[in-house]
């Protein structure tokens, strides 16, 4: 079975403390329960959560939706975006099955990156590692006005901006991520092709989608 790997890179720096990180936590719950209702996602989507603050950690390895349990998020530290990119690159290279003559590999992973601030480490060299891991559709989310969209638009051609990092907007973002995953898992099932930015559903109010 060809899996659809999904990597969620979540900024858990101190600035996300309080309402934003709680909203992200709830958003994860919402995301997973939504995906469980969708037969395509339930069968094909595999989810991993990588948080980054002063350093990045894969707190949930690539796990099928059926077994996924929402992790506890704690906000602290600074914004090691580069470490996050490096970590996801390593995870992709170890966890995602490559195609071979005998085995059809996994679909290209979807990457959703959410941050509310400026990177505090060297993200440019990490970006190259990230690209070398050949991720599929990558969506960067600037959570609130403090995020650096210029940096994010270098990481991906698809950037969504949350007007504010309040709980309702973050919740809306996770709903949109759920819809994106659902649509993508359905698309690859029918078209037998990796998901692309064209498969993304329109974002809800409060969230703007920029495709470069």
């Amino acid at each position: 079975m060809r899996r659809l790997p999904i990597y969620l890179l979540l900024d858990t720096s101190a600035s996300m403390g309080g309402e934003p990180v709680n909203a992200v936590q709830k958003g994860l719950d919402l995301l997973i329960s939504t995906l469980r209702q969708d037969p395509y996602a339930l069968e094909t989507a595999f989810l991993s959560v990588i948080t980054f603050d002063t350093e990045a950690r894969q707190i949930v390895p690539l796990t099928e939706i059926t077994d996924f349990q929402t992790p506890d998020l704690q906000a602290r530290g600074v914004t090691a975006l580069g470490d996050a990119l490096k970590t996801v690159a390593q995870c992709i290279s170890t966890e995602v099955q490559k195609s071979s003559a005998e085995v059809k590999g996994d679909w290209k992973p979807l990457v959703f990156l959410m941050t509310d601030g400026l990177p505090t480490d060297d993200w440019k060299t990490a970006l190259q590692e990230f690209r070398d891991a050949r991720p599929g559709l990558t969506v960067c989310c600037a959570a609130g006005p403090g995020a650096d969209t210029a940096v994010l638009s270098e990481i991906s051609e698809t950037v969504v901006t949350l007007d504010t990092a309040d709980s309702s907007t973050i919740s809306a973002f996770f709903k949109w991520v759920s819809a994106s995953i659902t649509v993508s898992s359905r698309k690859i099932d029918l078209a037998k092709n990796d998901a692309t930015g064209g498969d993304l559903p329109p974002p809800p109010a409060g969230i703007s989608l920029t495709k470069i």
Partner: peptide
């Protein structure tokens, strides 16, 4: 979490 059986969703 009680996960639906995929067959039930189809």
């Amino acid at each position: 979490s009680v996960i639906p059986r995929p067959k039930d969703l189809w």
